[in-house]
């Protein structure tokens, strides 16, 4: 079997605050293989976003090792190995949708023709063809988030890190985007790490679900999903789906027992 794309061993991160140290991550070990769709789920403060930020070199671990594509997160960031999608779309209001997607390409020094070709391609990928000249505020929240995914895809990183990308959207839009994200994943064969606090979303999307719990932030369960890769929305009513959802809920509850 090939080397995992992301590999963490005994990873810990402690923030020093005025109220004493906070153990955001403690002894995390996890391997993510190429082409997997991994969800991180847990209550707030469990370190799922922090873990994602460590992968992206936005936080430095205080102990343990982590590699991304076989190198350090910093080297991976320099090599532009991943695209990162934040909770909010974070599009610049003074740039068109096309201009926003072009932004990382300009920074990375792609030439003009290449930029135009890539913008066109990723817009089609997220079903926003024809919106290139629009400004972000002329689009709905769901469309803005799709544009921000297109922006993360534009420079062909084969890892996609997503931090609750649909958290601010309503249930109906979210269902639609989940379905589209799965199609996109099938088409591009990217490795996706996805942070969420919705059980159905995690179960529906993932090939692997990582359940985390807080104080200290740690992994309590890793579930390999038996669901097929091809998933229509109504798969969520099948017994298999409900069984995994049940196991995730149990894992979350076990994590909570520590506090109360």
């Amino acid at each position: 079997m090939a080397e995992p794309v992301i590999k963490a061993e005994n990873l810990s991160l402690t923030f020093e605050t005025n109220d004493g140290p906070v153990h955001a991550l403690k002894d995390i070990s996890l391997a993510i293989n190429k082409g997997e769709f991994v969800s991180f789920i847990g209550p707030s403060g469990c370190g799922k976003t922090t873990f994602l930020r460590v992968m992206a070199d936005l936080e430095k671990p205080t102990a343990g090792t982590i590699t991304v594509n076989g190198v350090s997160p910093e080297a991976a960031r320099m090599a532009r190995a991943y695209g990162y999608v934040f909770q909010a779309a974070g599009l610049y209001p003074w740039r068109t949708i096309g201009g926003n997607i072009r932004l990382p390409l300009e920074i990375m020094g792609y030439d003009k023709a290449d930029q135009a070709e890539r913008v066109k391609r990723v817009l089609e990928l997220v079903d926003l063809a024809g919106f290139e000249k629009k400004f972000p505020w002329q689009l709905s929240g769901g469309m803005q988030q799709r544009a921000s995914i297109a922006r993360a895809l534009a420079f062909d990183a084969d890892i996609l890190l997503m931090d609750e990308p649909f958290g601010a959207l309503d249930e109906i839009v979210r269902d639609h985007l989940n379905e589209q994200l799965l199609k996109l994943w099938a088409k591009t064969n990217k490795t996706i790490a996805f942070v969420t606090h919705s059980i159905p979303e995690a179960v529906y999307l993932s090939t692997k679900i990582v359940v985390m719990s807080p104080r200290p932030g740690r992994i309590t369960d890793v579930i390999d999903s038996p669901l097929p890769r091809e998933r229509p929305l109504d798969i969520r009513d099948t017994p298999e789906f409900l069984e995994i959802a049940h196991r995730v809920r149990d894992g979350l509850r076990a994590g909570h027992a520590y506090d109360d």
Binding site: R80, Y84, Q87, M108
Partner: peptide
């Protein structure tokens, strides 16, 4: 978030 985004692109 906007500053982090610039960082992920190694700007």
């Amino acid at each position: 978030m906007q500053m982090d985004q610039m960082r992920t692109w190694n700007a």
